[in-house]
Structure formats: structure tokens, C-alpha cells
Design a protein around this nucleic acid. Structure first.
Lengths: 248, 248
DNA sequence: CAGACGCGTTAACTTGGGTTATTGGTCGCG
DNA sequence: CGCGACCAATAACCCAAGTTAACGCGTCTG
């Protein structure tokens, strides 16, 4: 196949949006070609309540959608990993329901919503993939709401790590080898609804129990996936099937 | 306009799915005509993890999507009110991400997912409304995750009542008059992630403060919407615009 | 009609996790 | 190089919400 500008061997992004149809791939490449931009640091792309004209497609690095309450506390609603298409629209479609923020350095495409919708209508295989992504996002949010509402801090954190581990490694459950988790303990706390202090307490306890280790600031090694999965109250294979959209 | 079998004056359901196009309305009526069924009591229509072939459309009464954890604790993920279309699919599309359960007596249509998708492709105005509904659901879940992760019990309960009040009254913010809230305190607790005891404590306190009253078991009268909205940390008009899809 | 059940209500006691504060390490930058 | 910013780590204290238990009421049902 033609080597599209956004394609990269072994990269989740390329695997997701290779639709096995040269025409659709070309249309996709054309859609995002002009729109790639670099990001670094924490950078707000969209504010909740502001007019919303774009969908966001991270190519490298992660995005997050978040909401901030009047006291300044922030809740992360979902992460978008490379290949995910993130539409922050609220019920009115014209305004955003949540903030969109970058995490560290990366590249992303901002695609005008209308262009994106035309692309979906023209390419049913792309529409199918987007529908699977949307269903996956719903399943993830449901799963996380269960943890948020009913589970202990340990379970919430174990679940979050499992989810992000599965999403960051869509091709297999590789343990004993570091995977990159570009979130500080503060951010992890904003994701699971705990203070950063309690995140720290809990992760240290998990490390002491031999479940996982940090290699440097942002790389995690899972030593004992069965125990981690038990803490998270999930079955890894099953969770993968429900929250990871099958590509192409 | 022709009086379709599902149409009913002043009913939210009819307002949502009157697409202002006779052909689309007829196709819609045809789609659900054969599939209406009555429900009563708590009744499980779909189990998480089971094969999922239908989307659910309540016509009278509410549905809920929920997840149950290994200890038997339940978290309600979202409610579906008359006119909402509820697709419980997970990432794989073939299995359900959550349980679907009825609340009390009502009527609903179970539409095979494929038929529903064909209908959306054939009728862009319906697809547009469905997209707005999906965006509204996302906005609601984001808003609720913020409360679930970061807010006090009082705020969560006030928010839940505001959300359901707005959704149950899509045509205006009518206070001082009872509206029907077909959920017990137990269920409300499962919605906001609190024990039923704490839900009771909090609602009694709100009643003592003159914010709202119960008329009978399931009908609520809001006396002081500004205070309730302040407790919920929202602006009612703004919230309405972000979580209620505009009809037709 | 009597029993059982579900629901609302309240009280007494316990605990998980928030809050605040302090220390030390590491990175980026003037 | 030294400063400031950010982050991990840990301790001490406290409170919001969970848990358990008990009682009353309405309603379904055998």
C-alpha cells in the first residue's frame, strides 16, 4: 500500500485508520494532511461552553477531555489516544461540552466537524469504525462510572492503569516490560476522582506488594497482571473486547 | 400531519421524533409499529456481556443502563426517557456494555440494530437527531462524572434532580408544580454513587431548607430552583442547552 | 385477614480518603 | 551555575459518608 504521510509501522494510529480501501485511505490522508500541528506541554485546545467547530485526532501523544467545577477541581472525563477521534460537542453540536487539553508533546489533527461528517458519509467503512470508537468510549465511561461511584481507591486506580495499559497496547497484553503512561499522579487522581496524596499512598502500596513498579516518572512495569486485574475487578481479555474498538 | 400510532399531543416522545418530513415519519412509524411492548416493574431487558441485537426506545416510562460490580453494588450509568434511543453496544458492537432495565410500567420499542442503522442512513434528518442525542448523552455523562469524582453528596443529589427535572420537562422550567421522578431513594443512590441512607439524610435536609418537597412517593415539587441550582453548581438554562437535544 | 415485603426515616458508630504541611529530587531556563 | 517550578513521598489530623440496626407505614398477596 501507498505510504501515507500519517502512516507509521507498528503505530496504533496507522493500524486504526488503514481501512483496507485505497480510496478511503487517500481521502483520510487528504483530510488531515493540512491540519497536523505539533503540541508540547499542557495546552488547552478547547474550553467547555465555547463554540466548537473541530474534532480532534491525536497522532502522537494523548489528549484528554476534562471538566472543571467552580472550586477549580478538575475531573478528567476521558483520554484520547493516537487514532481516537474526539468530538467534544454538547447536545447543541455548536458548543463544547468539555475542555480538550493536550498531555505533553505530540502531534494532532484538528478537523472541521463538517468535513469530518462529509468524510464519514462518503466512506461507510470509516463511519463503521467511528461508530465502534464511539461505542467503545461509551463502554469505557460506563465502566469508569461504576468504579467512580462504587469502588475503593485501590480498585479505581488499578482499573485506570488496566484501562490505559490495554489501550496503550492494543496488540497484546505484554507484561514485565515498561509501558509509557504520560500522566502524573496528580492527573491520575483527576481521572479516578482521588487526591494526588491518596493516589501516591495507593500506588506505593501496590509497588510494595510487587504488583507494579515505576521505571522513571512515567513508565510503568506490570509484574503481576492477575493480581492487578483482581484489584481492578476485571478480566483483561474481556475488558479489552468491550473497550477497545477493533481497527480497520 | 397524520396522526401516527406513537404520536400523542404534548408528549416528549412525539416532539422528538416528528422530523417534519412525512416520509421519514412514516418510516419511523413503520419501524416501531410491530415492536412495541408493555413493561411493568423492574425488568431486565439486556445483560452486560450478552449478545446485543437491539436498540431500545422507551415510549412511556423510563429505562436505565446500569453496571453491577462483583459485590453486587450497582451503578446506574444513564437513564433513557421517552424518545431517547438507547444502544447498549460495547466496542465490538455485538455484545452489550451494560445492563438495560425498566423502571416501573411503561411501553417501549426494541428495534433490531441493523434496521435502525438502515433507517438512519436513509433519513439524514433522523441521523442528525440521533447524533444530537448521542452528543447530549456524552455531555450528561461528562457532567455526572465531574460530580461523581469531585463533589459532595449534596451537590450530586441536587445535580441529579436538576438533570432529571430538565429532561422530564423539555419544554420549560416549571417550578412549584409536581413532576414525576420514577426513582426510589435506593435507585437515586445508585445513580449518584451514595448509599440510600445518605440520600435520605440529604433530601430531608433539602426539604427542611425549603428547597423541595415530595408529594407522595415519586413526585417532587421544586420550590426554590435558584438554591437547588446553586447546590448542583449549574445554571439551569445553560445545562439545558448542553444536555437536552433539540428535537426534530 | 395476616403476613411479608419494599420503602422512607432516623440514630449510633466506624472508616476511607481529603487536607495540609514538609522534604527531597529533577528538570528546564535565565 | 543557581533559581524556581513541578513532582513524588510521607506524616498527622479530621470529616463526609458508609454501615448497621431498628421502627413505621403502605401495599401486595396467599
Amino acid at each position: 500500500m501507498e505510504h501515507a504521510p500519517w502512516s507509521q509501522k507498528g503505530h496504533p494510529f496507522a493500524a486504526y485508520w488503514n481501512l483496507g480501501c485505497a480510496e478511503a485511505n487517500a481521502a483520510f490522508a487528504h483530510l488531515i494532511k493540512q491540519l497536523l500541528r505539533e503540541t508540547r506541554g499542557r495546552c488547552v485546545l478547547q474550553l467547555a461552553g465555547d463554540p466548537s467547530a473541530y474534532v480532534f485526532l491525536p497522532v502522537e501523544g494523548w489528549l484528554m477531555t476534562a471538566k472543571v467545577d467552580p472550586d477549580g477541581a478538575r475531573q478528567i472525563v476521558d483520554f484520547a489516544l493516537p487514532g481516537d477521534v474526539l468530538d467534544p460537542a454538547s447536545a447543541s453540536m455548536a458548543y463544547a461540552a468539555a475542555d480538550v487539553v493536550t498531555l505533553g508533546r505530540g502531534r494532532l489533527a484538528m478537523i472541521p466537524r463538517e468535513g469530518w461528517q462529509r468524510y464519514l458519509v462518503a466512506h461507510p467503512s470509516a463511519a463503521g469504525l467511528f461508530a465502534r470508537q464511539s461505542a467503545a468510549r461509551y463502554a469505557r465511561m460506563a465502566e469508569r462510572m461504576l468504579r467512580l461511584g462504587k469502588s475503593s481507591g485501590e480498585t479505581r486506580i488499578a482499573y485506570a492503569i488496566c484501562e490505559l495499559f490495554l489501550r496503550a497496547n492494543p496488540f497484546g497484553l505484554v507484561t514485565h516490560t515498561p509501558f509509557h503512561l504520560p500522566v502524573t499522579q496528580q492527573v491520575l487522581g483527576e481521572f479516578v476522582g482521588l487526591s494526588s496524596v491518596h493516589v501516591n499512598r495507593t500506588i506505593r502500596a501496590m509497588a510494595r506488594a510487587g504488583v507494579l513498579t515505576y521505571r522513571g516518572q512515567l513508565d510503568v512495569v506490570i509484574h503481576d497482571l492477575p493480581t492487578l486485574a483482581a484489584m481492578a475487578q476485571i478480566d483483561p481479555t474481556e475488558l479489552q473486547a468491550t473497550i477497545i474498538p477493533s481497527p480497520g
